[in-house]
């Protein structure tokens, strides 16, 4: 085989839907014998917390299908038309949509974000937390999982300069 390929990802989003791609790609890259680094910055930083409390917010995702994870196949395929005035204003709507998404993922055999994160670490994926974001949003290292490195733009770019694949998510 050729020399080891390198993947560099910036994870900048913290909602449940956007929490998946960095962990899916990094864990798969490791399984494909690539090196992978994920740099967590801005709203992506909370994905390193011991307990991930990421949610989805349907009113900010107009294209997000609103489907039920239970019932007959026909029922599950209905895309419920929920106007933004409802999804954005009813208290608890995001929590409900989050549980529905988690339930759907579970039924479809998709790993949880926590599982994927763990598999990344087992496979040697490096996680770097943005030090500046920690200061700005007031996070401390003891809130995060073990094995996280801390650094800034230069730390990421030093690695990314030699990366074969660089993604901003």
């Amino acid at each position: 085989m050729a020399e080891t390929k390198k993947l560099a990802i910036i994870a900048s989003q913290g909602t449940l839907d956007w929490a998946y791609p960095p962990f899916i790609l990094a864990s798969t890259a490791a399984a494909m014998d690539m090196e992978a680094v994920v740099f967590f910055t801005f709203y992506g930083l909370p994905l390193l917390k011991k307990e991930i409390d990421a949610k989805v917010a349907p009113h900010t995702n107009p294209a997000m299908p609103m489907k039920m994870p239970f019932g007959s196949k026909d029922f599950q395929s209905i895309n419920w038309p929920v106007p933004n005035i409802i999804s954005g204003n009813i208290p608890g709507f995001d929590s409900m949509a989050t549980s529905l998404m988690k339930e759907t993922f579970k039924k479809k055999g998709v790993a949880t974000v926590e599982q994927l994160r763990e598999m990344c670490q087992e496979a040697g994926v490096r996680f770097i937390a943005c030090q500046m974001t920690m200061e700005v949003f007031g996070f401390s290292k003891d809130e995060f999982i073990d094995g996280v490195e801390y650094g800034g733009a230069a730390t990421f770019l030093e690695y990314a300069a030699d990366a074969d694949i660089s993604l901003f998510i």
């Binding site: 899916i24 399984a31 494909m32 055999g109 790993a111």
Partner: peptide, 13 residues
């Protein structure tokens, strides 16, 4: 069986 992307790949590895 029953698992979805990327689990089959991760488990195979």
């Amino acid at each position: 069986k029953g698992l979805n992307c990327p689990l089959p790949i991760l488990k195979t590895k």
